[in-house]
């Protein structure tokens, strides 16, 4: 075999470099604005960085984490993060799945109906938050009065200022805003199920419920799993609605870890402490991702 003659060095270099030339601008921006701050932020967790204090900046070791261990607000935020994430994702999934199934049947005006029910997704999140805060406000919004009329509220008051109910405010807004996401994803999955499968099942004598159970659900399961996993992380990090609607209050009852980070950085300008909390959140998310990967591996191994 004669080896291919070696090509000129510059030409080989050019071929190697080509994909990198195309992707370099994007990678540079991402590195400069996301990765570098990420690393810097991690270093802040071990330093005293306060914007209002010109003498800050020194290394404080694990002080922030010691403070964090005794921070009651942080512990409340952890619990809130759990409920906020689980409830939001599950309710979004439930209503999103129902909507996807409803839209999977052809009917007249489906295009328009689809555009209308998906519209909330396009509403800016700050506006979504404000809008729902107004709806929950008894002076201007109808919801407290309706809830009162239904007997769900003792008096038409604002649930956003009720420590026991406040978290439901942002959850409602998040569900309203997030249903389209699940519906669209699941609808796409539904429409990728070959229709001859349903026809074959129908000929085999399966009723609609059996068809849903034996064809639709198994097909949707992987999509649901992956969507729920990714959405969980996203919702846990999602702070806009909480910041706009309750600012974490009343009495930290709606404070999540992510919104607590923002409060520390934005209101108290304590970047060191905020970064320490961020690091904990990052670890929690990593642990979650790892857990999911392990579970997945277990499931794959079991299938073998």
């Amino acid at each position: 075999m004669t080896p291919a003659p070696r090509r000129p060095f510059l030409q080989r270099l050019g071929d190697r470099a080509e994909p990198w030339l195309y992707s370099a601008p994007a990678l540079i921006v991402i590195t400069a604005v996301m990765l570098v701050p990420l690393v810097v932020g991690i270093s802040y967790a071990f330093r005293d960085v306060q914007i209002l204090n010109p003498f800050s900046g020194g290394f404080v070791g694990l002080d922030h984490f010691r403070a964090l261990a005794g921070d009651k607000a942080f512990r409340v935020a952890l619990v809130n993060t759990f409920w906020w994430t689980v409830l939001t994702v599950l309710i979004q999934l439930l209503f999103g799945l129902i909507l996807a199934l409803l839209l999977d049947t052809p009917f007249r005006g489906r295009g328009i109906a689809q555009a209308l029910v998906f519209l909330p997704w396009a509403v800016p999140t700050f506006l979504t938050g404000l809008n729902w805060a107004w709806l929950f406000n008894p002076t201007i919004g109808p919801l407290p009065h309706w809830l009162h009329a239904l007997g769900l509220l003792a008096e038409p008051s604002n649930i956003l200022s009720d420590p026991n109910l406040a978290l439901w405010g942002p959850i409602t807004a998040a569900v309203w805003w997030g249903i389209p996401f699940f519906a669209i994803t699941l609808l796409a999955a539904l429409q990728s199920i070959p229709s001859d499968l349903y026809e074959a099942a129908a000929i085999d004598g399966a009723n609609p419920f059996q068809r849903f159970w034996s064809i639709t659900l198994p097909f949707l399961a992987p999509v649901i799993a992956i969507t729920v996993l990714l959405r969980t992380v996203w919702v846990a990090n999602f702070t806009d609605l909480i910041i706009v609607m309750t600012g974490g209050g009343p009495a930290d009852r709606t404070q999540t870890v992510a919104s607590y980070i923002f409060t520390q950085a934005f209101k108290r300008l304590d970047f060191g402490y905020a970064s320490a909390i961020s690091l904990v959140l990052l670890f929690l998310l990593l642990a979650y991702a790892l857990l999911i990967l392990l579970l997945r591996q277990r499931l794959i191994d079991r299938d073998k």
């Binding site: 991402i30 604005v33 990765l35 701050p37 990420l38 932020g41 980070i261 690091l279 959140l281 998310l285």
Partner: peptide, 21 residues
């Protein structure tokens, strides 16, 4: 992978360092 990771971590943790930088 890098692109995917940037979608997963909490952006709010960049608030402080980005301001400083």
């Amino acid at each position: 992978g890098l692109l995917l990771v940037t979608q997963m971590f909490p952006l709010v943790m960049l608030v402080a360092p980005i301001f400083k930088l």
